[in-house]
Design a protein around this nucleic acid. Structure first.
Lengths: 227, 227
DNA sequence: CCCACTCCGATTGTCGACAATCTAGGCGAA
DNA sequence: TTCGCCTAGATTGTCGACAATCGGAGTGGG
């Protein structure tokens, strides 16, 4: 559901998806320079479509482009991540508030079932935490869809979504706080079931704020280790 | 300050700015199909750079692209505008809250002076209301900058900003509520001066909510006239 | 009369080559 | 030695032409 199949459409679209994947997974390191000719050959296409793909990624803020100096993979420093989580707190909070009145009972039930399968997976294995991230993002995305606000869905889905995944790949290897996160997700769904938008927003904001605090500490430790 | 000079850099950037301008001013009608060859010739460039520009505008949500079927100017229907204003309420509210603690005294003073010149212009002429819109947007953009949140600035500046301007062009010919808006701007600046983030957020949210209500009614009237 | 098929023009998608620009390294002078 | 200049290579920006695809007019059959 999360991984869209872009193997149709223009070559530029395919290239954009493949590049986005490579960037998110870290296959292309942060700050790395992207050589157009090299990438074009690797993808088996001309430089035209590839340049269009880079423009697309630029709009998605996955790469930074400087005229006559090439494009580079974006660097997720502490400030950038902080900004992202701040915006996400506002937007996802809003999404929750709207979703509480806009989602159908079926959608909410589906959300609850998503958490069930999530919980099951946690009990089963501890090593496959990565998958948790994907599911977590899926949870958040479903709520964004529930808001029925196209602009909101686009911002949380297409744009921030990729940056978030990127961030997850950096941090998800370490022990994450999957259990408290699941608990918070449950609370949010409960609020949605009660159609309590205000509470749902509050819980989501607190959830994201906590996630940022956790990640922030993780970054601190990494910096200490590096130093 | 608002109108960036893009007459430097790549042709694609120039084309993107010129196209954005044409779309925002209504020179290119909503829903109109954009012919690549025709536009390329009009701008005196090849189709390559122009296609890159279209990709850029696509990311900015100013145009919609369908593979093998061309790109069209976005259509701002009621639902889309409603969504935009909803998101703006959340984001600009957040910007205000942050700006109350992040902006320097000089910046706030500058903001106040901006409103002075704004007021003066209102007294002078009634016909030049369009300029009011630009100044209004400038006011909002300065607050977004004051938040010190890059992601927020980008979302409110580069993306929504263009769509908003587009909307303004549609509605600003009619009598607008410049005076109450100015009054609300004053209140917001006062809250910023007092470093009261919560109040500033509340006032901004109310301001935007009111603006949407006003525009919504205007759309209703237009639809009545059309029917 | 209406539907489906076919063909053609127009438009988009793609490629390869050329021009403009930047970067790195060597060379010479202070 | 170090600074600045200059050349050479690589990389980006741009263009024109070709291939692929789509929409619509026209036509034939039911």
């Amino acid at each position: 559901m999360l991984i869209q199949v872009p193997e149709q459409g223009t070559l530029a679209d395919v290239a954009a998806h493949r590049l986005a994947h490579s960037i998110v997974t870290g296959e292309l390191a942060q700050g790395q320079k992207l050589n157009e000719a090299e990438l074009a050959e690797r993808f088996g296409m001309g430089r035209g479509p590839l340049r269009e793909a880079l423009r697309h990624l630029e709009g998605m803020r996955l790469v930074t482009r400087i005229p006559n100096a090439g494009t580079r993979v974006v660097v997720l420093d502490r400030k950038t991540l902080s900004d992202i989580y701040g915006v996400r707190e506002a937007l996802e909070g809003m999404a929750c508030r709207l979703a509480a009145t806009q989602m159908t009972d079926e959608e909410i039930a589906k959300l609850s079932k998503l958490l069930d399968s999530h919980e099951e997976q946690i009990k089963k294995v501890g090593g496959k935490v990565y998958s948790q991230s994907e599911r977590d993002l899926d949870f958040h995305f479903q709520i964004a869809r529930g808001s029925r606000n196209e602009m909101l869905m686009h911002m949380l889905g297409s744009e921030q979504y990729q940056l978030l995944r990127m961030c997850r790949y950096r941090t998800s290897r370490k022990a994450t706080r999957t259990k408290p996160a699941l608990q918070q997700h449950r609370q949010i769904v409960a609020a949605l079931e009660q159609r309590d938008g205000e509470l749902a927003e509050l819980l989501m904001r607190r959830h994201i704020h906590g996630a940022w605090k956790s990640i922030s500490e993780m970054i601190d430790k990494e910096e200490e280790e590096a130093a």
